[in-house]
Design a protein around this nucleic acid. Structure first.
Lengths: 209, 209
DNA sequence: GTCTATAACGGGATAGAC
DNA sequence: GTCTATCCCGTTATAGAC
């Protein structure tokens, strides 16, 4: 059993603390305390708290970009979409601290703003590709104005469902169930699906509750 | 021209600053500086920064509760709903600082948590009443499972649209256009409306762009 | 009611020994 | 690589004069 490097342990515990009590409420002292190392040691590995945040954001960004690289002009099935949504919500949940105080976090680390916005655009684009595929397979019927609104709505929900959900149970902020989010997303799409697909999607969505 | 009381001026400037740079980034010094009064003077009127936040939240809460008191068993027209949404978004936009760093704000002033959650529930309930009215007028056809998902979605959007929108233009955080939010909300409802109403709603929604 | 001055605190960050 | 001790600064909050 290989020993995990201190640097990585810092990132891991930081992430856990950020998620559970919110990034602004986490001091460098708390992090080092939790790990039973000295504050100085922490600053040996990272020259500032901001650096930790940025590196965590970088990880998130990389995972998301990887996930959002949806191939164009390929037939996407409802099940594949469900799986995609599942992964998406799972990833967001793992880095939920970013979204929970979004404006605050982005305003303090301002190089993150453009990167975050790019991510948001990619998200919308990915949903557009998926819907486009559905449309080509004649599984979906939707006007272009509605499509635009739908994809925006999907992006909004992908970003904020996790925060919205924790509002309902602010007590235990450790565990987050991504299922409900997937369920909501599917129900956004369902009205625009062809009748047969609607039933399929409805049945599928229940598995996520 | 009557002189505005200092106490109220503090609340007003605080609100403006909170909205434009985020509550956590606003110090009591900044507030008093902006008003050209001394920090001590500020503390004469409010015993802490938290008190200012709480009083502003109280105002928001009162306005919202007033707005959300939708009468039951009354026929609601699409136009009335549009007006309601407009007021709703306008109010949220005026107190958008609460939502922009929601988790952070709620975690630091923990008595606000339950109050906020109650507000959220009332929001969902109000949407349910409206949809119920539509259904009774046979303007809307929707299953109870979908209805639940729809109302949750409406609540989510009502809460977060404003923050989501400012992400697109983080430069000027002073002005917020509530129109797009109303537009999105309408497009959530449209798929479940009867054909005639759909057209009406679509036309209406464009006015908000 | 409003001001100035200052105390008290907490968090981020550094220096230097081991 | 890790530790202890310490500095610096911003922020909240208070004391007391006007």
């Amino acid at each position: 059993m290989k020993k995990i490097k201190t640097r990585d342990r810092i990132l891991d515990t930081s992430l856990a603390l950020f998620n559970s009590v919110g990034e602004p409420n986490v001091t460098t002292l708390l992090i080092s305390d939790e790990m039973d190392i000295s504050p100085g040691n922490l600053y040996y590995h990272f020259k500032s708290k901001g650096d930790i945040v940025e590196e965590l954001f970088g990880r998130f960004e990389a995972e998301m970009l990887d996930l959002l690289a949806v191939p164009k002009d390929v037939d996407i099935s409802l099940d594949q979409q469900g799986f995609f949504l599942h992964l998406l919500f799972e990833t967001v949940a793992r880095y939920r601290f970013i979204y929970q105080d979004l404006v605050n976090v982005l305003s303090r680390y301002d190089q993150l703003q453009t990167r975050f916005r790019r991510l948001k655009k990619k998200k919308t684009a990915a949903f557009q590709v998926i819907c486009e595929s559905f449309r080509q397979q004649e599984m979906m019927e939707i006007g272009s104005e509605q499509l635009q609104a739908l994809c925006e709505q999907l992006t909004l929900t992908a970003c904020y469902w996790c925060s919205f959900d924790t509002l309902s149970h602010l007590n235990d902020r450790e565990s987050v169930d991504p299922g409900r989010g997937v369920y909501q997303m599917m129900h956004l799409v369902i009205p625009y699906l062809a009748p047969d697909e609607q039933n399929h999607a409805r049945l599928m969505s229940r598995d996520y509750l």
